[in-house]
Design a protein around this nucleic acid. Structure first.
Lengths: 348, 348
DNA sequence: TATTAGCACTCTAGTAATGTGAGTGCTAAT
DNA sequence: ATTAGCACTCACATTACTAGAGTGCTAATA
């Protein structure tokens, strides 16, 4: 269904007004607030058309109109760019202290809180996966008995470690030897390649470190995914400020959903592939059965590589314009902050 | 005020019944449920006495009695041990999969969830601080430019790392040299002693590594506290199952409190000193202004050393008997699990 | 003297009755 | 095509009423 210019204007007005007030919008209120140059009766007719088109609904006969998911969709896709009054949020952006450098974990936590504070919704950040899994250094440390620790240091300064158990009784010297052997290899090869080469080496040469290699291989695989699995949720209580979550039942299910971070991960990961900002409205969210929630997601990158996802979860009735702006800003900010760290490692 | 045997029995009955039902307890209901051998009128008189003593209150004139904080206090201190019917919870304990070994972080997360599942409240665990800060190994890794990474490996296999910046341009060889020097020292000295010795050495001998030592010293201090600052909250949504948190306002403030992990940390740490299980009822909680919440805390240890705190946060009206049991059980379980890891390091 | 039966009194929670007002949808006039 | 006018609808708030659980007091009882 095509919308003519006037209908668009009314739809936008209804949604803007509804987002601002939270209660259904009636024709009289609308003409008083916006100046369409027509009477409320005409607006009523237009609204009826929009309802027929599926953009608006009625909670009940004698109530005003409320946007549907489709309405929001249209709003996001076609209407939101018409005007660009994001000055107020721009101010807030400048006033809110940005996440600062430090521990990667802290950075992620702060970023999620940053998102939450500015959007008044829950902020979500998925930790960066190491780009191409380049390691700068691999270290073996003997612990008691058969146990040893493999330490992976990435170019970004992230350190991962994994406890392994060795069958044979390998001395620290031997471990050091193997470690420096690996280090040498690391000068040329990415983790992915090393994995391959390790397996190859194991077949052709019968090195004494067969088992150790095998363990290292496994450990690197596990360690690889570990960071990427981390989901940081900040300011979840922000979302409760919203009147639509006044019902205890909804609140509870929302928080249950937050606790199941794995699902969230899947949800966000799904959108990581595409470029730019994505908005998922209400029932469009596949894994997130929570009704009445929207999602604004983007991803952040280092250089050309997308390394992580971040976004905002809030009620369907959220301040899309501002939230989109905030998410966009944060993703660029995070990319920049991470870029400063990664730079060195890429020129290795 | 002294309570005679019969009054105690009634108080216990009221609290038990109130904990079970959640609604104020009237005299008639009570005599029907428990057999005191007296009529409801007498029970009414007793209740009036108990109210005078401050153990019970009235929500309003024509309602039953509800325990006060003082009532709960008396219940915990004097009444709860009289009977010991924790068989049902014992069953659940056995049926719930215990936290298993693995990453320390995972272990903590699982422990907090374990607590939550069994107590139907929020579970809180504070990560173990390293006992006496013994390090097994210290490693330096050069990154780009002036940056370097110090890696601390504890006897328990926990790895901590800290990014530092060096003024001079120290080569990896020099770093290795200094690292092995430290490693050598570590054979004899605990971190605490090394700290001291580092400072001393810096004064008497004029080693070339002055700045590096200083950085290492600072880093170790920071790293030392880092783990202990971590608060794991599991199953926060469990607490919402409780009817007393039906009000959105209370729910919100509770979750806000959860987000302020630092306060929680203080709150729990305060109780870490004392032995055994501690119960803080309602307004007894100092930093936790949240009304109507109780806290059951214990700590866990490795060998003789208390290394961390764990507990449960729930409504004042919680199943104390069972929760206390669960917290006790979990603290012992965690001590055992950690003990298995630490054992090796202590015999170093 | 402690206990108990009986009864008047209190207060909440739930239900029904009622009114108000915002808002629609239709029709007829412009 | 637009608009004024009007009947109609429905949620929401207010009020009134009732039922019931529970207390606290008093007088009778063992």
């Amino acid at each position: 269904m095509e919308l003519d210019e006037r209908n668009k204007k009314v739809l936008q007005a209804v949604i803007d007004s509804y987002i601002a007030s939270g209660s259904p919008i009636g024709s009289t209120v609308l003409v008083r607030q916006y100046d369409f140059g027509v009477s409320s009766a005409t607006v009523r007719n237009i609204m009826a058309e929009l309802e027929e088109g599926g953009y608006l609904t009625h909670p009940h006969t004698s109530a005003g109109r409320v946007p549907t998911d489709l309405g929001y969709r249209y709003y996001i896709d076609s209407l939101i760019s018409i005007e660009n009054d994001t000055d107020d949020i721009e101010d807030q952006l400048r006033q809110t202290p940005p996440p600062h450098k430090g521990d990667i974990q802290e950075l992620m936590e702060e970023a999620s809180r940053f998102l939450a504070t500015l959007s008044h919704c829950a902020g979500v950040v998925i930790a960066p996966s190491e780009p191409e899994g380049q390691y700068k250094h691999i270290e073996f440390v003997r612990l008691r008995g058969k146990e040893a620790l493999i330490i992976f240091v990435t170019g970004t300064g992230t350190v991962q470690n994994k406890l392994i158990e060795l069958d044979e009784h390998i001395s620290q010297q031997e471990l050091n030897y193997f470690g420096s052997y690996l280090d040498e290899q690391l000068q040329q090869w990415s983790l992915h390649e090393i994995r391959q080469r390790l397996v190859d080496k194991m077949r052709e040469e019968r090195l004494g470190f067969t088992q150790l290699m095998e363990e290292t291989y496994r450990a690197s695989q596990e360690v690889q995914g570990r960071d990427a699995e981390k989901v940081y949720i900040g300011g979840a209580s922000q979302i409760l400020e919203n009147p639509e979550f006044a019902s205890v039942e909804r609140m509870r299910s929302l928080f249950k959903a937050f606790e199941d971070k794995f699902k969230l991960l899947k949800l966000l990961d799904r959108s990581a592939a595409a470029e730019g900002i994505k908005v998922f409205i209400g029932a469009e969210n596949p894994y997130f059965e929570m009704q009445g929630c929207s999602l604004v997601v983007s991803n952040y990158r280092v250089g050309k590589n997308v390394v992580g996802t971040l976004g905002v979860i809030g009620p369907t009735r959220m301040q899309y314009k501002q939230v989109i702006h905030v998410v966009d800003y944060t993703s660029k900010l995070l990319s920049k902050l991470l870029g400063e760290r990664f730079q060195g490692s890429l020129e290795k």
